[in-house]
Simulated assay, not measured.
Amino acid sequence: MPTLWQSKELSFEAIGQELQALLESLTSMSELIRQIGEDQTLATVKEVIEVFAENSTKIREEIVSLTGLMIHKLQSMMQHFEGRNKMKLGPQKDILRMLHEFASDIDESLVRGKERSERARKQVANVSWFSPFI
């Protein structure tokens, strides 16, 4: 639930664009590594770029995997709601908006519950001084 609020800002288009930019950067780094070749004066720079490129590639692969998982789960959720409502629910934004509203309702309920609890606790505290006389 804590990440549900952030899901409202989620855009698979933006993720795709960022992944494409990362891929282009990795391609540029690979080209730079190739251009450096065996030049010993740039060996340290080449090593740093290789390590960075390797780490970046792993991160990109993780992001691609997680994005695929998110898309799969979102599609499953949309199919679930479509089946239950016997109508198409619409794009991911509708699902995420609905989940956001649900989380907001839960938060409001928790706040109201805490307020009631606090009022009840205070009422008991106010009445408790009568206990010895009852």
Rank of each mutant, 00 (worst) to 15 (best):
L110H: 06
S28M: 10
Q75K: 14
S25Y: 11
G37K: 04
E118G: 02
V111P: 01
Q92V: 12
S109V: 10
S56R: 03
M87Q: 13
G113T: 10
A103P: 00
L23Q: 13
H100W: 03
S131Y: 03
G90T: 01
Q20D: 15
H100K: 02
M29D: 12
I36M: 02
S65H: 11
T41D: 13
H100S: 05
V48R: 15
S11M: 06
S25H: 12
L10C: 04
S104L: 07
I33M: 05
P2F: 05
V48G: 01
Q35G: 02
R97A: 09
W129E: 12
E118I: 06
S117F: 15
V111M: 12
T41Y: 04
Q75F: 06
A53E: 01
K93R: 10
L10G: 01
F12Q: 11
T3S: 04
S25M: 13
E115G: 01
T57E: 09
Q35P: 02
G68C: 03
S76G: 15
V64H: 05
R121F: 12
S25A: 12
I15S: 10
N85E: 15
S56I: 00
K46D: 03
S109F: 14
G90Y: 01
A53R: 08
K122Q: 13
D105I: 01
L69F: 13
V127N: 12
Q6L: 03
W5A: 04
F102G: 02
I95R: 02
V45M: 06
F12M: 10
E101M: 15
M1G: 08
D94T: 05
S117N: 08
E118Q: 13
D94M: 04
D39N: 15
A125H: 05
A14G: 00
T27C: 05
L42E: 02
S117K: 05
E54N: 09
H80W: 10
K73F: 08
Q20E: 15
K88A: 13
E108L: 14
F130G: 00
S30F: 02
T67H: 14
E13R: 09
E118D: 14
L22S: 11
